[in-house]
Computed example of a mutant assay.
Amino acid sequence: MRRNVTVITGGSRGIGAATARLLGAEGHHLVVGYRRDRDAADRVVADVVAAGGRAVACAVDIADEDAVDRLFEVASERLGPVTGLVNNAAITSRLGPLADSDTSDLRSVVEVGVIGYLLCARRAVRAMSTSRGGGGGVIVNVSSAAATLGSPGEYVHYAASKAAVDAMTVGLAKEVAAEGIRVNAVAPGTVHTEIHASSGDPDRATRVATRIPLGRAGQPEEIAHAISWFLSPGATYASGAVLRVAGGN
């Protein structure tokens, strides 16, 4: 039986780290992509190994084409042919209205959240497509409920980048279905992760809980289970789907 070799971007923290730990426990071999925090990535790798799995950490700026190529080369060289990609890495900027945002922040969010996702998905297709000699596989894009809510007054640019991810998911799923590749997305709502601190509001997840029908923000592990399902044999007829995991929002 073919083993699962999965690349996770943004795997050192939050949803990415929770997903890596869950997939590792489920038998996936993992490449944990991270941008800066090697220690955090190494802790995730150690947890996977302690659970009996195999994992390796790899620094990557997903907006850099050469870095993305290297990420997938590490996967194939160290673990074997890639069978899955969790496109998870993302950044945001300080909360506030679009009119007050810096151009550099707009560019950075789009470079990582759109260009980076496209580069990683393109590289995954090249590795997994049956028409290119691969064995097929699965791509799961981590989107956001912000794609349809718009995030007014907070980060409209981030919401726009996630709407692009949803469109990419639907289009790419149709494009590569005949090549043995399924493409889906998970759209989390507000989740307790470090991204809120990087936006200048570390308590945001708790603060906005009253807006969520379930009355609370989510936990990274709850999103990880949705991602894991798309990668599982139970989801073999799911492609082009955007699964909202947002507490009712």
Rank of each mutant, 00 (worst) to 15 (best):
P81E: 15
T92W: 10
T92G: 14
D69I: 01
A75Q: 03
I91W: 03
A41P: 09
N87F: 06
D69A: 14
F72M: 05
A63K: 09
D47M: 00
G52A: 05
F72C: 07
D47V: 01
L85M: 09
V49W: 00
D69L: 10
A57T: 04
V68F: 09
V68N: 11
V49N: 01
D47F: 00
A59P: 14
A89I: 02
A89G: 05
E65S: 13
A50F: 03
A90V: 06
V56E: 15
N87V: 06
E73F: 01
V60M: 13
E65V: 13
N88A: 02
A50S: 14
D64V: 03
V56T: 14
V68Y: 06
V74L: 08
D61E: 15
I62Q: 15
T92I: 03
R70Y: 13
R78P: 00
I62P: 06
V48K: 02
T83D: 09
I62C: 07
N88Q: 02
A50M: 04
R54P: 00
V68I: 11
R43N: 13
S93F: 13
A41T: 11
D69N: 13
V86Y: 11
V82Q: 07
N88M: 02
E73P: 02
D69K: 11
V74K: 06
V48M: 06
D61Q: 13
E77C: 08
A51C: 04
D64T: 03
V60P: 12
A46T: 02
V86A: 06
G52K: 11
S93K: 03
E73I: 01
D47N: 02
V56C: 12
A57K: 04
V86C: 08
V56R: 14
V86G: 05
E73R: 13
L71S: 13
A50R: 14
D47P: 00
A41M: 07
L85D: 08
L79C: 05
A57I: 01
T83N: 08
G80N: 11
A63L: 10
G80C: 10
A63Q: 11
D47K: 05
G52L: 05
A90N: 03
E77G: 14
R70E: 15
A41Q: 08
A67T: 03
G80F: 11
S76H: 12
R54V: 04
D64H: 09
R70A: 15
V44P: 06
S76V: 12
E65K: 13
A41L: 09
D42N: 10
G52M: 03
D64G: 09
V74S: 06
G53N: 04
A50V: 01
A89H: 06
D42E: 15
V74M: 10
A57S: 14
D47L: 03
V56Y: 07
A90I: 04
